[in-house]
Simulated scan of single mutants.
Amino acid sequence: MKPNHKGTAQIFKNPVLERLTRTHIALPIAIFMVIAVALIYYGLLHGFITVLSAVALFLVGWFLFTFVEYMAHRHLFHMDTDTEVKKNIQYTFHGNHHDYPKDKSRLAMPPIVSLFLASFFFFVFKLIFGSAVFGILSGFLFGYAIYLFVHYAVHAYAPPKNFLKILWIHHSIHHYKHDDKAYGVSSPLWDWILGTMPPEKSK
Rank of each mutant, 00 (worst) to 15 (best):
M1L: 06
K13E: 14
K13Y: 08
N14E: 08
P15G: 12
L20E: 13
R22H: 15
A26F: 12
A26W: 09
L27Q: 05
L27F: 10
I31G: 01
F32K: 05
M33D: 00
I35V: 15
A38L: 09
I40H: 01
H46F: 09
V51G: 03
F63N: 06
F63Y: 13
L64N: 10
F65V: 07
F65E: 04
F65C: 11
F67Q: 07
V68K: 06
A72Q: 03
F77C: 01
H78G: 03
D80M: 13
K86V: 12
N88R: 15
N88I: 04
T92I: 06
H94K: 05
H94G: 01
H97F: 07
P101T: 01
K104L: 14
P111E: 08
I112V: 13
A118L: 03
A118M: 06
A118D: 01
V124D: 04
L127D: 14
I128D: 11
F129W: 14
L137E: 14
G139F: 07
G143V: 03
Y144P: 08
A145Q: 05
I146W: 05
L148T: 02
P159F: 12
L164Y: 11
L164I: 02
K165F: 05
K165P: 07
I166S: 11
S172R: 14
I173C: 00
I173W: 03
H174K: 02
H175A: 03
D180W: 07
D180A: 05
A182L: 08
Y183Q: 06
Y183D: 02
W190H: 09
D191H: 02
D191F: 06
W192Q: 09
W192F: 09
T196Y: 12
P198D: 11
S202M: 06
K203L: 13
